[in-house]
């Protein structure tokens, strides 16, 4: 977790917790390191995470990262990196603020960001470009308009919301960027809470091990809340669900599923 003290505004630290738990539930031991601004970042981590932050914090974070070439090298050669929002922009070539001032990014992605006129705030849906991951859901809150280089695919093709805010030659609108080692997105939520398949993709890449399925009843309900259903709901009011489920994490030797007699019962919603 890089700079949780600086890029911690949008609760993206949840991504670290989610990766650690999903690994642990599969018997893979993990350690989450909070690499704050006063620490020298290790270059030996398997996964690096960068979150979102406010403008001033973003410029500070970009300067800080640029001071550690070994970290940059690890991110481009050995590790897997998930970068969200401001964190994504920092890994690109450059970013410009509202006054038109341009700052250099780390240059790990062919990704350029300028400040848009309006803030993009709301739910996003996209179709992930990584095979097998499926639909991505998240909440965006940013003013950046980003352009990806011709050879850099986005993380997802946007079907709802803004994402990068630009379209490719065929008019498809992307969110984020995706190379073999670096996954970048504008999605909060945190993104791995709403999209466990993306979390498991990162874990598979980092460990080289298969990740057997996990069944979390609340996870299914969260996906039902945010993904389109047969009865589409209006923007900003995802479908709610009155089913109940019970989770007793202690009974399942780490792996969580619906084991209780309460699971599946439907309770009538009060007026």
């Amino acid at each position: 977790m890089l700079l949780p003290d600086v890029l911690g505004t949008y609760s993206d630290a949840g991504n670290a917790l989610i990766l650690a738990q999903r690994a642990r539930w599969r018997g893979v031991r993990t350690r989450v390191l909070d690499i704050t601004a006063t620490t020298v970042p290790p270059a030996s981590c398997d996964i690096y995470l960068l979150g979102g932050g406010e403008d001033g914090a973003q410029v500070f974070a970009a300067d800080w990262l640029a001071r550690y070439p070994a970290l940059r090298h690890a991110m481009s050669t050995t590790a897997v990196t998930l970068a969200v929002c401001a964190g994504l922009q920092i890994l690109g070539q450059s970013m410009s603020d509202r006054t038109g001032h341009t700052y250099s990014g780390l240059g790990l992605l062919d990704f350029t960001t300028i400040a848009g006129r309006r803030r993009a705030v709301g739910e996003v849906l996209s179709t992930c470009t990584i095979p097998g991951v499926g639909q991505l859901t998240g909440f965006e809150n940013h003013q950046g308009i980003s352009t990806t280089g011709d050879d850099l695919p986005p993380l997802g093709w946007v079907t709802r919301g803004v994402g990068n805010g630009t379209a490719d030659r065929s008019g498809h609108r992307g969110d984020g960027a995706c190379t073999g080692r670096i996954i970048g997105t504008y999605l909060h939520g945190p993104v791995l809470a709403r999209n466990p398949a993306l979390a498991d993709h990162i874990l598979k890449q980092a460990t080289g091990q298969p990740m057997p399925p996990l069944d979390l009843p609340d996870q299914r309900a969260v996906r039902r809340t945010y993904l389109p259903t047969r009865h589409p709901t209006s923007r900003g009011t995802p479908a709610t669900d009155a089913r109940i489920s019970s989770v007793d994490v202690s009974q399942h030797r780490g792996v969580v599923d619906s084991g209780s007699d309460l699971a599946g019962k439907t309770i009538r919603r009060a007026p």
């Binding site: 949840g14 989610i18 609340d218 309900a221 202690s250």
Partner: peptide
């Protein structure tokens, strides 16, 4: 409920 699952807190989810 999902957040509580990741926190290892046994719980029941009822809207």
């Amino acid at each position: 409920g999902l957040r509580l699952s990741y926190a290892d807190i046994p719980h029941t989810t009822v809207e």
